[in-house]
Design a protein around this nucleic acid. Structure first.
Lengths: 108, 108
DNA sequence: CCTCATAAGTAGATTGGCTACATGTTGCCT
DNA sequence: AGGCAACATGTAGCCAATCTACTTATGAGG
């Protein structure tokens, strides 16, 4: 999968994995890998800045903890984040319809 | 629809509209608008550079003509372009599976 | 002791879609 | 006749998100 195919789609995906339980960055990486069937192996240089950005934007809230001598920053969805996630899901449906309308994949 | 949701998905879409008939730039714009149900209204500053890029890459070939006093540059798919289009369609299927696996839109 | 998995980050390059601008024709409306 | 919408093509420069490559640190297992 090409690098910037993700562009603009990563944010809702990150929000989605913390929808039902707060997770720390590394666990978010693993959750994305697992949910995508091994396709989505984000470099840390993508994920961590994205998390900071989402927190600055008010969609995530974080707090530090220490587990087994390791520091973790755990992120949870805010109510603004939940709204953004819902909007993102809706936008995905539209986007998919646009791409498939143009590509007409039935004629592949 | 967000601006850079398109990132990395525009190229196959452009190739798709000239798959069965050569079209000039303006007609490609209109075809994208029509096939997307009015959602995909590309600015000329996006489309024309993209067409140049696709031609430089060998996926499109162009020639000039004059119709009703107006100059047109008509693009057609090359065989390399056809291969790229097929690959792009396949990549889209993968990409869609990844996003939907993460988003789980059934739980919206 | 060394290396892998866990854990979090930064700096800097890339890149492609965007806004805004530039140019010219045809045809319709007033 | 004047003006504006639609037709038609393009460039310059901005911006933001993802990437590569690097840094730091702990715990566990060989």
């Amino acid at each position: 999968m090409k690098a910037d195919a993700l562009r603009g789609h990563l944010d809702p995906m990150i929000l989605a994995v913390v929808e039902h339980e707060p997770l720390h960055g590394y666990a978010i990486m693993e959750a994305l890998l697992e949910r995508s069937g091994g396709e989505l192996d984000l470099p840390t240089g993508t994920l961590y800045p994205a998390l900071r950005r989402l927190e600055r934007a008010g969609y995530l809230a974080s707090e530090w903890s220490t587990v087994g001598g390791r520091k973790r920053r755990t992120y949870q969805l805010t109510s603004a984040g939940a709204k953004m996630l819902a909007a993102g899901k809706q936008e995905w449906v539209t986007f998919r319809a646009v791409v498939e309308g143009v590509l007409r994949p039935g004629q592949a």
